[in-house]
Structures are given as C-alpha cells and as structure tokens.
Measured scan of single mutants.
Amino acid sequence: EEEEKKKEEIARLLGVSKEDVERILKKNNLDIEQLLRRVQREN
C-alpha cells in the first residue's frame, strides 16, 4: 500500500521505526504527505 511505503520512507530518512512514524503522525495530527515533504526538505 502506498501509505505504508511512505511511512517506511519517512522512518528510513529519520532513522526511526515505522511505529515511531505513526506516533509522530498521531501526536502532531499531520497527514503522511505533509510529514514526508517536511522530512525530504530537511534531508
């Protein structure tokens, strides 16, 4: 699934687990696209 791939990509870029990414998304109330763009910009 596309969303899972995005979570895995974010996890890889941040050096965290996919579960961490899911927690970040919930905690910050971000959607996956916003987080992915933010992470890609910083790297």
Rank of each mutant, 00 (worst) to 15 (best):
K27S: 12
I10Y: 03
S17F: 04
Q40A: 07
R38H: 15
R23Q: 13
Q40V: 08
L14D: 00
D20Y: 14
V39A: 14
D20I: 14
I24A: 03
K18D: 02
L13G: 01
S17N: 07
R12S: 05
K7A: 04
E3I: 14
D31E: 07
E8I: 11
E3Q: 13
E22C: 10
L35Q: 01
R41I: 09
D31L: 05
V16A: 04
K6A: 10
E4Y: 06
K26M: 13
N29H: 11
K26V: 12
I32K: 01
L13D: 01
R38M: 15
R41S: 14
I24R: 03
I32W: 04
I24V: 05
R12T: 06
E3H: 11
I24S: 02
S17W: 02
N43M: 15
E33P: 02
R37M: 08
L36Q: 02
L25E: 00
E42D: 10
E4K: 07
E2M: 09
K6D: 04
K27F: 13
N28H: 15
E33S: 06
D31H: 05
N43H: 15
S17Q: 07
E3F: 14
E1M: 12
S17H: 07
E19W: 09
N29R: 12
I32H: 02
E19D: 11
D20C: 11
K7I: 12
R23A: 13
V39K: 02
A11S: 06
Q40T: 10
E22V: 07
K27A: 14
I24F: 09
L14K: 01
R12G: 05
I10H: 00
R38P: 01
R23P: 02
E42W: 05
E42Q: 12
G15V: 02
K6Q: 11
V39H: 04
L14G: 00
I24H: 03
R23V: 12
K5I: 10
L14V: 01
R37G: 07
A11Y: 01
K7S: 02
V21Y: 01
V39S: 06
I24W: 10
Q40I: 12
R38K: 13
V21D: 00
S17L: 06
R41V: 08
E9S: 06
D31R: 06
K6W: 11
V16D: 00
R23I: 11
V21A: 01
L30D: 04
K26S: 10
E33F: 05
G15T: 02
D20M: 15
K18N: 04
Q34Y: 06
E22N: 11
N29T: 04
R12Q: 06
E22S: 05
L13I: 14
E42T: 10
G15I: 01
N43V: 15
R37T: 08
I32T: 10
N29L: 06
D31Q: 07
L30K: 02
Q40L: 12
I32V: 15
L30V: 08
L13A: 05
E19T: 10
E8L: 15
D31K: 07
N28A: 13
E2V: 09
E9V: 12
L13H: 05
I24C: 12
N29E: 06
L35M: 05
V21W: 01
A11G: 06
E19V: 09
G15Y: 03
K26G: 04
K5E: 09
L35G: 00
K7G: 01
N28L: 15
K6F: 08
E33T: 07
V16S: 03
I10E: 00
R23D: 11
G15D: 03
E8T: 10
K6T: 08
Q34I: 08
D31S: 15
V16T: 06
E4M: 08
N28W: 15
V39L: 15
L30F: 08
Q34S: 13
I32L: 14
L36H: 04
D31F: 03
I32N: 01
A11V: 03
V21M: 02
L25M: 12
V16H: 01
E3P: 07
K5F: 11
L36A: 04
E9H: 11
G15H: 07
E19A: 13
V21N: 00
E9C: 12
L13V: 05
L25S: 02
V21T: 01
D20S: 08
V21S: 00
N28E: 15
R38A: 14
K18E: 03
Q34V: 10
R41Q: 14
L14S: 01
V21H: 00
D31I: 03
K27Y: 11
E42G: 09
R38T: 11
R12C: 11
R37C: 14
K6P: 02
R41F: 09
K18V: 13
V16F: 04
E19G: 09
R12I: 07
K26R: 14
R12E: 04
I24N: 01
E2D: 12
A11T: 02
Q40F: 03
L13M: 09
K18R: 10
E42F: 06
R12F: 07
N29V: 04
E9T: 13
E42I: 10
V16I: 15
E1W: 13
E3W: 08
Q40E: 09
V39E: 02
E1L: 14
R37Q: 14
K7W: 05
E42H: 13
R41K: 14
I10N: 00
S17C: 06
L13W: 06
V21R: 00
A11I: 02
G15E: 03
N29P: 03
D20H: 11
S17R: 10
E9G: 04
L25F: 02
D20L: 10
V21I: 08
E8V: 11
R23T: 10
N28V: 09
K5W: 14
K6E: 03
I10M: 03
E3M: 14
E1G: 11
L36R: 04
K18T: 09
V16Q: 03
E19K: 11
L35F: 07
L30C: 06
I10P: 00
R23K: 12
I32Q: 01
K27H: 12
E4T: 08
I32Y: 04
R37A: 14
K26Q: 12
E33W: 09
A11D: 00
K7T: 04
L13P: 00
E1A: 13
L14I: 04
E2W: 12
N29Y: 05
Q34R: 07
L30W: 14
I24D: 01
E2R: 08
A11K: 01
R38G: 05
K5V: 10
E9Q: 12
E3T: 12
K27E: 15
L14C: 07
K27W: 11
Q34P: 01
S17D: 05
E22Q: 06
R38Y: 15
S17P: 05
K6C: 10
E4W: 06
N43R: 12
E19S: 11
D20G: 05
R37N: 12
E2N: 11
K26Y: 09
L13T: 03
E2S: 12
K6H: 07
L13E: 02
E1H: 12
L30S: 04
I32P: 13
K18H: 05
E2L: 10
K26F: 09
V16W: 06
V39W: 03
E4G: 06
L14T: 01
E8M: 14
V39N: 02
I10C: 15
L25H: 01
R38E: 15
E33M: 04
R23C: 06
L36W: 12
K7V: 08
D31G: 10
L14A: 01
K6L: 14
E1R: 12
E19M: 11
L13F: 05
R41P: 05
E3S: 11
E8Q: 12
E33V: 04
E1Y: 13
K6R: 07
K5H: 10
N43T: 13
E9A: 10
N43P: 09
L14Y: 02
K7Y: 07
E8D: 10
E42L: 10
V16M: 08
L30R: 03
G15S: 05
R41N: 12
L25C: 09
D31A: 07
E22R: 03
E22Y: 03
K27T: 13
K26P: 00
D20F: 14
Q34H: 06
N43F: 13
K27R: 14
K27L: 15
I24M: 11
K7F: 06
V16R: 05
N28P: 03
I32F: 04
K18F: 06
E2Y: 09
L36I: 04
R37Y: 04
D31W: 03
E9F: 15
K5G: 09
S17E: 05
N28S: 14
N43S: 13
Q40Y: 05
Q40P: 02
L14W: 04
K18A: 06
E1F: 13
I32M: 05
I10S: 01
E2T: 12
K27P: 01
E3D: 14
E8C: 10
V16P: 00
E1V: 12
K7P: 01
E33Y: 06
E9P: 00
S17V: 03
K7Q: 03
L13Y: 06
E4I: 07
L25V: 05
D31P: 04
D20T: 14
R38L: 15
K27I: 14
L36Y: 09
K26C: 14
K6I: 15
L35W: 05
I24K: 02
E3Y: 15
L36T: 02
V39M: 08
L30H: 03
A11C: 08
